[in-house]
Nucleic acid binder design. Structure first.
Length: 556
RNA sequence: GCGCCUGUAGCUCAGCUGGAUAGAGCAACGGACUUCUAAUCCGUAGGUCGCAGGUUCGAAUCCUGCCAGGCGUACCA
């Protein structure tokens, strides 16, 4: 919001300059107010003079001089300088920053929230793993990203719904049933070879044991199809329950669990195909029905109904995405693993074909997780069945460390996740660095309460803010002020690691301040000012951690 | 072959809707605990931003072409 004020000042000065004839054109080209990297360049800087050079037919530095002469310095702006090729640098007075603290106290849990979303209805769909096995590390990263993106969009003023799509229909469920059934037969003492294309994990054997305990050997006599159907239903239900528990332990809840089967039951898949047929977007070839995806930018046309009469996964996905927009979402965001990237264009094609804009469909492609233990790679092969589950990870390193690690860098890059490192309770592990700030501040506030300096460790109004004059204090306030911009940037780019980076810089500034200045001193008035500042820091740390789904502990 | 992602300090990565001297953590080296939690801080050292062109007053950032790595390229899900 500070940026806004500066922009206003620049625009006013430009207008004045035009009115008194110093500038020849009233045109204002696209200009930036930015925060310079170096302190020597002030708190804010604008490239106005440079971008205006062409329009004004004047040297940038000359334009800068005209503007600077019209900008009043005084209470808020300490000084204005011209630098380099024509940057105008603004140096703010300490006083200009104090309102930030008041805002934190006033807005508390809403501090940093934005309204850029304008209540737009957005759906974020993530994880959506097949209920054929437990969630693994890759799902964990997708879950952390999807959940945080949802939180951040919500905080930025979007109307967000989080959804999990359950692929409870189709061949993989039948394969699951077969897998369990074969294990069940083996359990009953039958010599049956385990099929190559079945799920090999130990959890299949566990499921078979459960059925065996409940039902005994009764399935050996039963009709194969009937038995497999029973096993499939039993296993899928059980596995889905496990998935829900694992996600819940990971701090994730969904607004809706959407069943693929329900699309078939409601006739929506057929309806989608019929709809495309009437638009002449479907044709028959080699006994199969094809969607003209190529007409909408895909590399080739895609099958929706196979020559055996069965619909493809793509067919139900078309119906599913149509359904999303019919539910009223303006924007649909899917979080997928990078190995599905070839699928984007085809869904996009179907979305456009059904009358929506391409911009209304976005995919967050999360690159793969490379699991390590003490620097050595871990094998994760679903085929062999010896993969590391999300539950393993959460049990071993904890929810907070896992989530923070998953969000520590952009999902555009592959992630090395070292279990040994995530487990360490020291500075190698960034989650402690940040949580420690929250705990440390709580410690200070508790001490202040004990000494009767404050009534309660949480209070709702800053005191003696004007006494905050140390460089480190002003610096901290500046970072606190930047929280909202970071939320907005994170929401606009759909990148939660922006919040991670922000947290690290705030934590660093706080630890630095803590080591240099004592909060509680003999100077009562100053102590109150500093307590207000650190409580402000505490609130912002909490707000930011909440967006990432990480807890803010009172003590560690 | 084609498509998506990546290539920045010894390692892991920020910075990428163009801005002024490219940042952080780890590792290395040297310091700071009688103090509100040393799970911390301060300092030193470390870089042809994969390579080559182009656009621009200005390029790690945008465009083109190479090179390297990961992933994908089904009438599977």
């Amino acid at each position: 919001m500070m940026k806004h004020t500066i922009k206003r000042i620049v625009l006013d000065a430009a207008q004045k300059a035009f009115e008194n004839g110093a500038l020849v054109s009233e045109q204002i080209p696209e200009m930036e107010i930015e925060e310079p990297r170096h302190q020597a360049h002030g708190d804010f800087s604008t490239n106005f003079a440079m971008v205006s050079a062409a329009v004004q037919k004047m040297a940038p530095r000359k334009i800068a001089e005209i503007l600077v002469s019209l900008i009043e310095t005084g209470s808020l702006i300490e000084k204005v300088e011209i630098a380099g090729p024509g940057f105008i640098n603004f140096f703010l007075s300490n006083k200009a920053w104090y309102p930030v603290i008041d805002q934190i106290f006033e807005q508390d849990k809403r501090y940093g929230a934005s309204d850029i979303g304008k209540n737009e209805k957005v759906q974020v769909e993530f994880v959506s793993a097949n209920p054929t096995g437990p969630l693994h590390v890759g799902h964990g990263r997708g879950a952390a990203v999807g959940d945080s993106v949802g939180n951040i969009l919500c905080f930025a003023g979007f109307d967000v719904q989080k959804e999990y799509y359950i692929n409870d229909s189709g061949r993989q469920i039948r394969t699951l049933g077969t897998s369990v059934w074969v294990r069940l037969l083996q359990k009953s003492g039958k010599e049956v070879e385990f099929p190559e294309d079945c799920y090999k994990g130990d959890y299949i054997i566990d499921l078979a044991s459960e059925i065996h305990e409940k039902e005994g050997d009764k399935f050996i006599q039963k009709d194969e199809d009937e038995a497999i159907a029973y096993c499939a239903k039993f296993a899928a239900k059980k596995i889905l329950k496990g998935i829900k528990e694992d996600l819940s332990d990971f701090g994730i809840t969904f607004d809706q669990w959407f069943s693929e089967q329900s699309l078939y039951d409601a006739g929506r898949v057929q309806k989608a195909i019929d709809d495309f047929k009437t638009k002449d977007l479907i044709y028959k070839e080699d006994g199969a029905l094809w969607f003209r995806a190529q007409d909408f930018g895909d590399e080739k046309n895609r099958v929706v109904v196979r020559n055996n009469g069965l619909t493809t996964y793509f067919a139900s996905d078309i119906a599913y995405h149509m359904e999303k927009y019919e539910r009223g979402f303006d924007r649909v965001i899917d979080v997928w693993g990078a190995d599905h990237h070839g699928y984007i264009k085809r869904i996009d094609a179907s979305v456009v074909a059904s009358g929506r804009k391409s911009e209304q469909f976005e995919v967050i492609l999360v690159q793969l997780v490379n699991l390590l233990r003490g620097g050595k790679p871990f094998q994760m092969s679903k085929r062999a069945g010896d993969f590391v589950t999300l539950k393993n990870i959460v049990d071993e390193v904890g929810k907070d460390a896992a989530r923070f690690m998953f969000l520590s860098r952009s999902y555009d890059s592959g992630l090395d996740f070292d279990l040994e490192l995530a487990k360490q309770k020291n500075s190698d592990n960034p989650v402690y660095y940040v949580q420690y700030v929250h705990a440390r501040i709580t410690g200070i506030l508790l001490k202040a309460k004990q000494e009767n300096i404050i009534q309660d460790i949480d209070f709702n109004k800053g005191k003696n803010i004007h006494l905050l004059n140390a460089v480190e204090e002003i610096n901290l306030i500046k970072i606190l002020n930047a929280f909202k911009e970071n939320v907005e940037k994170s929401a606009q780019t759909l990148h939660p690691h922006v919040i991670f980076t922000y947290l690290m810089s705030l934590a660093s500034a706080f630890h630095s301040y803590y080591n240099k200045h004592k909060v509680i001193t003999d100077d009562q008035e100053q102590t109150l000012a500093r307590l207000s500042l650190v409580l402000g820091v505490k609130k912002v740390i909490r707000n930011a951690l909440t967006l990432l789904g990480v807890t803010a502990p009172e003590r560690m």
